[in-house]
Design a protein around this nucleic acid. Sequence first.
DNA 1: ACTTATCCGGCACGCGTGTGCCGTTTAGCT
DNA 2: AGCTAAACGGCACACGCGTGCCGGATAAGT
Lengths: 200, 200
Amino acid sequence: MAPSDRTPDALHADAPGRPQRADGRRNQARVLEEAFAAFAEHGAAVSIREIARRAGVSTGTVTRHYPTKEALFRAVALHRIEHLVRSAEEITAREDPATAFFTFFALLVRQSAADHAVGDALTGAGFDLQAAASTAIHDFGAAMAGLLSRAQRAGAVRGDADAADVKALIAGCIARPDDGTAQRRMIEIACDGLRPRPAS
Amino acid sequence: MAPSDRTPDALHADAPGRPQRADGRRNQARVLEEAFAAFAEHGAAVSIREIARRAGVSTGTVTRHYPTKEALFRAVALHRIEHLVRSAEEITAREDPATAFFTFFALLVRQSAADHAVGDALTGAGFDLQAAASTAIHDFGAAMAGLLSRAQRAGAVRGDADAADVKALIAGCIARPDDGTAQRRMIEIACDGLRPRPAS
DNA sequence: ACTTATCCGGCACGCGTGTGCCGTTTAGCT
DNA sequence: AGCTAAACGGCACACGCGTGCCGGATAAGT
């Protein structure tokens, strides 16, 4: 065979002493898949043992592929964040500055409610992803700042609001027990609050 | 002798088998006092050991007077809640329905930021005080509902908002990292969002 | 088929938590 | 002064967590 180059893949095992084994690759994918589901359901608070149980492997297997719990959570959360960044870019291109921001805001709230991993990543519950600099979260911050400042220049959002305010409002919307109509109303309330004050 | 019934004290002995000892009362007060400070600083997450250390007693002494951590936290939180209820009544009597609600809202946010025990009690972090029915939290709910509905009847707050929405907005304001001016702005944003939409 | 590095399961360790318990001390009444 | 129950300190237990580690299994290359 002599397969010249075996995709080293994975976050580790760059040394070409031996390629990654097939079952290892399968298990890693399975763990990641179940971690997605588990974190989405219960947030970053789920235990490694629970994820291992769901994936049908032992805890050792989980920590092998993701040496620490934070590494696993980041692998899951960054996927979602990257997806959000793409959505932000798409919305920015598609819609005018005024509605683009509010559309993205609503998207963030809905995603956070549906996927607790997103909510925990945004609010910093469990782990502080901001700390470990990553291109994904940097891009997200940039996208958010861009959306916000464009909306402000368009006069759709009060000028003194900053990204932290928006993040806090999202946290507030998430805090609302999840009822479809109630969530939509909370988004309305938050967005209305962000608009410039009528006159004064 | 012939101590007909020896109540091994249980919580504060009501049965007069023996009155509460003076040092016991002093220690209990000291524990409660330090628990106030500790919970205010770090929220419901502080450990029993930490509170015992601050009070200069052992953990056994803490759990004697407050058999469970939840009991201790409730003793602290309910004090604060009762104080908030009194403030609500005072504000209700002093101010017109429109501004009374917003004044109380701002008070809740400021209190929650200054005293993490209040914030944790309101958001249900740590313990669910709603579960264990208490007159204090019942009164608080009633006061909040009254303030809200009066403001709604006065046309100062959108009619479809409910108490859970307000609670979520408070949680959002708390989530904002504590900067004086930022907090004031967050309160503005939240209150503006609660106002009726300007027709259109 | 044989070898070997990879992978795995599962156990155990350390940490921190809340809580139960026991032997001792001490306050307060007679 | 003497007695007794209240109160104490402090240890140890059970729990759940993340993580390190080791001996056995096994896929992959020869």
